[in-house]
Amino acid sequence: MADLIVTNVRPHGGAAVDLAMKDGLIDAIVPTGGEAVADRVLDGRGLLALPGFINAHAHVDKSWWGRQWVSYGGEATTQGRIAHERAERDALGIPSVDATVAVLREFLRHGTTATRTHVDVDLGVGTRGIESVKEAAAALDGAVDVEIVAFPQDGVLRRPGVLELLDRAAEAGAASIGGIDPASLDRDPVGQLDGLFEIAARRGVGLDIHLHDGGELGAFQFELIADRTIAAGLQGRVVVSHGFGLGDVAPARQEALVDRLAEAGIGWTTVAPVRTAPLPWRRMLERGMHLGLGTDGIRDLWSPFGDGDLLKIALGFARLHGLRTDEDLARVVELATSSAAPFVHRGSHGLSVGDRADLVLLDAENVPDALVRTPRREVVVAGGRVVVEDGELVI
């Protein structure tokens, strides 16, 4: 007997079915209308069904969500944001388990059931942030599947001891280690990348590098990353986050870079921020690159914006890239759901038998309608457990 059956739902806007779930997985899919027998039966009311959203780029360790409003301060540059965060985070109790739980609950409210999150590792906090995130995920009993990237927000080589911290984090179980702006922040792209790749290869972990640098400076670092990925045999295990420079360069240069990145099996995550250049996303997908969407920080010392709704990020991506057709709009929703599976090390993530029982129900006619209206998530099921009902958290 199933643990949970959700009746009368329309996967991706198609024909109505019943979804049976057992032991946290989708166990059976049958036409709706038959007798449903399970520990619990939930009426899906003919709502549109999507897989749970996968947030491929988050920072859940340093939000002030749910706390007193914090006014924006410091300089509006990468260096300025880092300095401001270092100066103010202790006063806000960052990192903390409670704040991280609050963010993860908002993820669930909006239908996100898995996330790849960067967690700061530096000389000020050590690896405390990683422990806080692990404890927060455990407090929600795994409702959000959390994958951790140990992230050197304040730089790598310019802070002696950070490479050792990243090595310790990898040894302790971080799925990936991170890097940030090897050229403009550390001012030693070869040194930073060589150090990071050595740890990743030796520890058998992934590598995820924030790259804010634009134009040819960014392009130069993409080439360095691709070269090292191939040399180290890490194809499929390296991700570039943001990568604004790819949208800045001339079309022929852009095409050649995508081909090289695809050859190296580099994945890519974007938060589709306003006022940035569109990515060559069609060519990236055609060449087999994995492309994921993320929320980035949510109400933190970098920005007061964000609420954890990945569907809104997908809408921003569609607007940034001027998308209009049903096919394109539906493809963007796939970026936020099923095709983001590799970012959390899943072989598949969807509404098929054997997939983790992550389900989001929305009152929408079809997938494009859901994207452009971003209606509330009526029901969210995470790992076979109902966590949102009638739009409200129940955990």
Rank of each mutant, 00 (worst) to 15 (best):
L4W: 05
V6G: 06
N8I: 01
G13S: 09
G14K: 10
I26D: 01
V37G: 08
V37E: 15
A38S: 04
D39W: 00
D43G: 10
P51L: 04
G52M: 03
A56G: 13
A58E: 13
A58F: 00
W64V: 13
G73V: 08
E75S: 11
G80P: 12
I82S: 02
R86G: 14
I94F: 10
V97D: 03
D98I: 10
A99E: 12
T100E: 09
T100P: 03
V101H: 07
R105A: 13
E106A: 14
L108I: 06
H110F: 14
H110V: 02
H110M: 01
H110A: 03
G111F: 05
T112Y: 01
T113H: 01
A114K: 02
A114Y: 02
T117K: 05
L123K: 12
G124I: 12
G124R: 13
G124V: 13
T127H: 09
I130P: 08
E131C: 05
L140R: 04
G142A: 01
G142C: 04
D145R: 14
V149R: 01
P152F: 01
Q153Y: 06
R158W: 05
R158Y: 07
R159T: 15
V162G: 12
L165T: 11
D167V: 09
E171L: 13
G173M: 08
A175M: 12
S176C: 13
I177A: 01
G178W: 05
G179V: 02
D181C: 09
P182T: 08
R187H: 15
G191I: 09
A200E: 07
A200G: 11
A201Y: 04
L207W: 06
H212G: 10
D213R: 03
Q221A: 05
A226L: 05
D227G: 04
T229Q: 01
T229M: 04
A231V: 12
L234C: 04
Q235G: 10
V238D: 02
G243W: 00
L246T: 03
L246R: 06
D248V: 06
V249C: 04
Q254F: 07
E255S: 15
V258Q: 00
D259L: 12
A262D: 08
A264N: 05
G265E: 04
T270C: 11
A272F: 02
P273H: 02
M284A: 08
E286G: 11
E286P: 05
R287F: 05
M289S: 09
H290L: 12
H290T: 13
G292I: 03
G294I: 00
R299E: 13
L301A: 11
W302G: 15
P304D: 06
F305A: 14
G306T: 03
D309E: 12
I313Q: 10
L315G: 05
R319D: 11
H321Q: 09
L323E: 09
R324F: 13
D328R: 12
D328F: 10
L335A: 05
L335Q: 03
A336W: 00
T337G: 08
S338R: 14
A340K: 00
A340T: 03
A341E: 04
R346C: 09
H349I: 02
L351R: 02
L351M: 08
G354S: 03
D355N: 10
R356N: 05
D363M: 00
N366A: 08
D369Y: 00
A370W: 00
V372H: 00
E378H: 07
G384S: 09
V387R: 01
L393F: 07
I395Q: 10
